[in-house]
């Protein structure tokens, strides 16, 4: 077996109210050092993690939202967001922050891809390791 596996981190919970989003992000950052084929999925309340202009000063917790924008520097370039989860929460792609990475032509391109539920299931089925948070 090859040493490179397809890792998918599934984010299903809103940020700040529970620690899952923050600690999931910590796994992604550490995991980047292992040079695996990494993707992130955002579904259910997990889509709130990528909402832009998050401000946490009023609740006294660390705002880790800017870290998502740095994922490109860690070679994490595939962020799949489920279309139905956005719609069910009254959100659209315009409500999400910009997350980009540099492509082979040194152009900044979006890391976020909006996918429907059926496509998300295909993405999950294609993985070797699915870590759900």
């Amino acid at each position: 077996m090859s040493d490179t596996k397809r890792f998918l981190y599934v984010n299903r919970k809103a940020p700040h109210g529970t620690v899952y989003a923050l600690e999931s992000l910590e796994v992604v950052l550490i995991g980047a050092a292992f040079e695996q084929d990494v993707s992130l999925a955002f579904l259910d309340d997990g889509v709130f993690q990528l909402v832009k202009k998050q401000v946490t000063t009023g609740i006294g917790v660390k705002n880790f939202a800017p870290t998502y924008r740095a994922l490109g520097d860690y070679d994490v370039k595939k962020l799949y967001v489920e279309r139905e989860s956005l719609a069910e929460r009254g959100l659209t792609e315009d409500d999400l922050m910009e997350v980009t990475h540099e492509n082979d032509d040194e152009e900044d391109v979006s890391s976020i891809e909006i996918v429907d539920r059926a496509r998300m299931a295909q993405i999950m089925a294609a993985q070797d390791v699915v870590l759900s948070f």
């Binding site: 040493d3 890792f7 796994v27 550490i30 995991g31 050092a33 292992f34 695996q36 390791v129 870590l131």
Partner: peptide
């Protein structure tokens, strides 16, 4: 956390 990733591998 590297131990988690390594376990996955």
């Amino acid at each position: 956390l590297g131990q988690l990733i390594e376990a996955g591998i």
